[in-house]
Write a protein that binds this DNA or RNA. Structure first.
Lengths: 340, 340
DNA sequence: TTGTAGGCGTTATCAT
DNA sequence: ATGATAACGCCTACAA
């Protein structure tokens, strides 16, 4: 028993005008006289008119909607990035459809297809752990629907990506541990196909090499980087001989889970083992000792990604398709790694 | 230079059929012969056809889209709730538009209007801190667009709400502190117009009364419940005479921020002061001592809310508009409050 | 400055 | 089992 919707026809009839004039007035077209425009706007408000976006989109062949695909929104970084994207979308009058791939390439592909069918004007993506085949983005490229990747990207895709220099960040984090006197440094990371993890690992390796420390594959542990996984890492660390004296995690949650477990086992941090995380999640200032970590700006990254996408849509941006935007990051030194 | 979209006309022309038949085949209408159906489906796939949802929605007068308004998605609880909502929406073939009010009633109202104009089929809402005027939901009620509120609700709105018994949870948390021997218990909460905070406060008061402890307004502190606000709370606690010996926070983040600051100031937890939080955020198991807290199921709540909304849309649910669904919660006792 | 009319891609009703 | 056709509500040449 839904009440009938008011259309421009109703307004036109009410005011004895043509729908064309009404339509124009509603669009705030300068060609309509001030007087009739006011009459129309008032009537529209009074009658409870709301534009029918389907009719509009159908006619205009665009949706004013952006799709967003992210692995999960359960991290501080992702929340911030989404908030950034949203703020820009709001400013520019775009709607957002946000979906989570849950770190599954299958879900990612199905979401991509779904958003494509919904004719999003553009797509923002942060890739799942294990996506290696990017054919689900092909339809977008074929139809010239712009794509922007952020944080979790891939160089083989011909699209703009916005991220930090993960290799350098990994290098910086590892070197910091080395400078604190660590000689046997473990690196904990996730599925290594994803750029962020591959690059951080590379940075770790380069730092070791640069300081004449041996690289040992056994010292690289792989898991899903959850807090629970950190507990498992603690067990592994305890089983290693000789004892590692430093560990660089590819995210804070896992680092924190591990720290709690290690302390329970009687290890002293940073004396027995120095720890560095990644992301600067709020939890880094809760764990004791506070966690040294790499900070990078999720909100800014989100804003930038959205802005870039919208500029591309407006044609106001001369898009160089294969470009890459690197944001600044920062090593935040706290007590978990400082041995004075 | 967007390539042309394939429509049912194109398919019809290609196969020398009418658009009606093509449309029916695409809908998998049983009236179309198996043979032609296959022919059409194959052609559609080969030609890269995708349904135009605008044309479809325009015709069908529904969007298959649900709106979601939440205060912020930066908490573990909200992430879980959204994940729950999303899983149901996916199963049932609904799209989601998620927006954040950023705890501002103005933003909430503007989002509500925007989603209304986008003709969402239904709306899921968790209210901002300070919303007291609910007129922005009136258009939905007038047009019979179903509303479901979850977690942050209000009894004066004539719509289904899904939440926990916050009064009882507040009572349980406070009584736990009392049973641990606390006599001067502080309660830290947020803007008190919101049900979740009002009710937890009521529970706190009832527990005090039930155990013949005096209620003192000075012992109720109000802030935005952020981790940083917890630091301020620590200062306040230190300035109180006599010293409080227990504190019940309306969320974990604030509790954790406060604990860290208190420990820095030399207070022993739980000996000097016992602490209870709310939400069972992962950070509760990171802070030391681990935080006693109230657990309640965000994912389930999200699923339930979405299911309820969709059932209402399908008419498969006999909707009693003014009903309320209470989920179970649980007090999880950890070391921050146990004095043996 | 305003009006007329065609078309955007579907679905559904009525014929055939 | 299939086809013709009229909406759905909006925008925009083109005309007046």
């Amino acid at each position: 028993m839904k009440s009938k919707e008011v259309t421009i026809y109703d307004i036109a009839r009410e005011l004895n005008l043509s729908i064309a004039t009404v339509s124009r007035a509603l669009k705030n077209d300068s060609v309509v006289s001030k007087k009739t425009k006011k009459k129309i706007l008032d009537a529209a408000a009074a009658m409870g008119y709301r534009t029918n976006h389907f009719a509009r989109n159908l006619r205009l062949q665009r949706t004013n909607t952006l799709g967003v695909i992210i692995p999960r929104l359960n991290s501080y970084f992702m929340s911030s990035a989404i908030a950034g994207i949203e703020s820009v979308a709001n400013e520019k009058g775009y709607n957002l459809i946000i979906s989570q791939s849950s770190e599954s390439k299958l879900q990612e592909a199905s979401i991509a297809q779904n958003l494509f069918n919904h004719r999003v004007d553009g797509l923002l993506v942060s890739l799942a752990y294990d996506t290696t085949d990017y054919s689900h983005f092909l339809p977008y490229q074929n139809k010239n629907v712009p794509l922007v990747f952020f944080d979790r990207t891939d160089d083989t895709i011909d699209a703009t990506s916005i991220l930090i220099d993960n290799e350098l960040a990994g290098y910086t984090a590892t070197e910091h541990l080395i400078l604190q006197g660590c000689k046997r440094i473990v690196h904990v990371t996730a599925h290594s196909v994803r750029n962020v993890y591959q690059d951080r690992l590379k940075g770790y390796q380069r730092a070791l090499a640069h300081h004449q420390l041996p690289f040992n594959e056994q010292m690289v542990l792989t898991n899903n980087l959850s807090q629970e996984a950190g507990i498992k890492v603690a067990e592994l660390l305890q089983s290693m001989h000789p004892r590692p004296d430093g560990v660089f995690f590819a995210n804070d949650n896992c680092a924190v889970g591990c720290m709690v477990a290690l302390k329970k086992a009687g290890w002293k941090i940073p004396e027995d083992i120095a720890v560095v995380g990644f992301n600067n999640d709020p939890v880094a200032t809760v764990v004791e000792p506070n966690l040294t970590t790499i900070h990078y700006p999720g909100h800014t990254m989100g804003r930038l990604a959205a802005n870039h996408l919208i500029s591309t849509l407006n044609g106001s941006y001369t898009l160089n398709n294969a470009n890459k935007l690197l944001l600044r990051f920062e090593l935040i030194i706290r007590d978990s790694s400082t041995r004075t």
